[in-house]
């Protein structure tokens, strides 16, 4: 990948206040890049900090959250810019799609109202123009009878249709980056496939960049160009999709892939033993060590740094048990 990426996140750390006065670190030292026209995947179980990451990038963290590091977007640092500039960017250059289309659309406002209000706010234009734009966008995401759809309420659409509408809504202001937080998780498998195809098509047609956040590596393998894997607030592995998903190097990624239905050469689905740590109880050392089959004594003490093992591949595991053997058994 050459040239400056569209979004370049460096050492992002997010902490949230705990009622007893201490701070919980939801994300630590996260590094992430999204190139122009790229679909970058961010994977991890629930509680791994991936959703907090997306909220931090959008500037929607709850009160009391503290953020450090930098997130360069189109040459400007999101984390240090004024709230006003941030608000001007939000929904305009960077848009967000939420997990559950059943709750992300306002139940009492018509589709037309919801699809035009931010367009009118960002572009200071007439309702008629905004409606035309909304109609085009609905057409783009293949909603039948877009004009009629604008007059209806969300509860008159199915889940898949609502997610299409949410995507169309995000596209209205021609954003360069879309952050999609588990956009297909709440949908049926057949509907999921349609939404993923839609992302691929839009990326091609609109030169859109997408940060796709999901716990589902199956979804990831379908569309992502690059994959980053998070565990307990830290990045554990990152690289091109084909590399990471076919030749995982971090034990956690390996475990995730084995847990996929129908995956894992060595005998079908295997779950990772143990439970993911909650945000309040990150174990010392490598956070994954209590569940790791390759755990060495040093893993319980030292936090492994993320190191580049090739041009385009980074892992946070000094043991590297899955490295290809020097002498390959043929």
């Amino acid at each position: 990948m050459t040239g400056a990426p569209l979004l370049d996140v460096t050492d992002l750390t997010v902490s949230l206040p705990h009622p007893d006065g201490s701070r919980l670190f939801a994300v630590r030292d996260l590094n992430l890049r999204v190139g122009a026209g790229q679909i970058a995947g961010l994977a991890g179980e629930s509680g791994s900090g991936k959703s907090i990451t997306s909220l931090a990038l959008m500037g929607l963290l709850p009160d009391g959250a503290k953020v450090s590091g930098s997130a360069m977007f189109e040459g400007r640092d999101l984390l240090s810019m004024s709230a006003r500039d941030r608000a001007a960017l939000r929904g305009r250059q960077m848009a967000m799609i939420f997990q559950d289309p059943m709750t992300a659309l306002h139940p009492m406002l018509s589709i037309g109202r919801q699809m035009t209000e931010h367009y009118r706010h960002h572009f200071a234009t007439t309702q008629a123009k905004a409606m035309r734009r909304a109609e085009e966008m609905l057409d783009l995401v293949r909603i039948p009878d877009p004009r009629g759809a604008l007059k209806r309420s969300p509860h008159q659409f199915s889940g898949g249709m609502r997610q299409r509408i949410a995507i169309a809504m995000a596209l209205c202001c021609e954003p360069t980056l879309i952050i999609a937080d588990e956009p297909t998780t709440a949908l049926d498998v057949t509907v999921q496939a349609g939404i993923l195809r839609l992302f691929e098509r839009l990326r091609g047609e609109l030169d859109l960049s997408v940060l796709l956040i999901t716990h589902d590596l199956g979804v990831m393998s379908a569309v992502a160009d690059r994959v980053s894997v998070m565990y307990a607030g830290r990045l554990v592995e990152g690289g091109a999709r084909a590399d990471v998903l076919t030749r995982p190097r971090h034990p956690y990624t390996h475990g995730l892939l084995n847990a996929l239905p129908g995956a894992g050469g060595s005998g079908g689905m295997q779950t990772i033993p143990g439970l993911p740590p909650s945000i309040a109880t990150h174990p010392p050392g490598c956070a994954f060590h209590p569940r790791c089959p390759f755990c060495a004594p040093s893993c319980k003490v030292d936090t492994p740094p993320l190191v580049a093992i090739s041009d385009d591949r980074r892992i946070a595991c000094p043991i590297d048990p899955l490295a290809p053997k020097k002498v390959t058994a043929s």
Binding site: F98, A104, E117, H121
Partner: peptide, 17 residues
């Protein structure tokens, strides 16, 4: 606390709206 309120904020609408 609803998702759609967060979604409205994500659209960049002013806090008042």
């Amino acid at each position: 606390g609803n998702d759609y309120v967060r979604a409205a904020r994500a659209k960049g609408l002013p806090a008042r709206t």
